[in-house]
């Protein structure tokens, strides 16, 4: 039962990330989402008695709840970027689009994938929805940092999928993925600095020198 509560709240947090207008709020949303992911992983580890999942949960807490959000906030403070996200779509329209995405992932899960277990169908639809929402944030928000957050949201969706459906990936793989995610965030952060230094803005829609 508690799992349902966690899953529903993670969906609500994802919706919240779509309607926010300012960068710090978006990063806080990501932090909250990661924290819920931590709770779900920890509860799975407890009920399924999978020792490896405890380590995964701790790593989520350490990396995705503390380290990465702080790092992103640090960047946005340092380069003193305009905190408005610069929306291609306003919040009302965005939430409509994301609701449609939710419905589509629900349709995909129940029509195309054929799970026997209701709970599994629900979690699969949910994770697919989170992945698509991450993609939505990447495409329809203008700042470079929001693209990083969108990428991380997609990754959160996949972690949720791996934990709920397969009780985590093989341990070595899981650890390497954590390492990869962490390195990629740092590299992306470095590039945000460089973009800011060269272009004096971080609006990705204005990066359009290369064409054809």
């Amino acid at each position: 039962m508690h799992n349902y509560i966690f899953l529903i709240s993670i969906l609500l947090v994802t919706y919240y990330m779509v309607i926010v207008k300012r960068l710090p709020a978006l990063i806080s949303g990501f932090r909250l989402q990661s924290f819920l992911l931590f709770l779900i992983t920890a509860s799975f580890a407890f009920y399924e008695k999978e020792a490896a999942l405890y380590i995964v949960a701790v790593l989520i807490l350490f990396l995705k709840v503390i380290l990465i959000p702080n790092f992103l906030k640090g960047i946005s403070r340092k380069i003193q970027v305009n905190e408005n996200l610069g929306l291609f779509l306003n919040p009302q329209l965005s939430i409509v689009v994301v609701l449609i995405l939710t419905y589509l992932s629900y349709l995909f899960t129940f029509k195309v994938m054929t799970f026997t277990d209701k709970m599994q169908s629900a979690t699969f639809a949910l994770t697919l929805c989170i992945v698509l929402t991450g993609l939505f944030i990447m495409i329809f928000r203008l700042k470079a940092i929001t693209q990083i957050v969108g990428l991380l949201v997609m990754e959160n969706g996949l972690f949720l999928l791996a934990v709920t459906m397969c009780k985590g990936m093989p341990f070595l793989v899981e650890m390497s993925i954590f390492l990869d995610v962490f390195i990629s965030v740092i590299i992306l952060g470095i590039f945000v600095y460089r973009i800011n230094a060269l272009f004096t803005h971080i609006d990705v829609n204005k990066l359009s020198n290369l064409r054809g």
Partner: peptide
């Protein structure tokens, strides 16, 4: 320079998104 940083940004972002779908497939 401006063009190479732009190319690098697009490269890492688009490939990361693509590879996330590959991870979804793997899962």
């Amino acid at each position: 320079n401006k063009t190479s940083i732009e190319a690098a940004w697009k490269y890492i972002i688009i490939c990361s998104v693509g590879i996330i779908f590959a991870l979804l497939g793997t899962i």
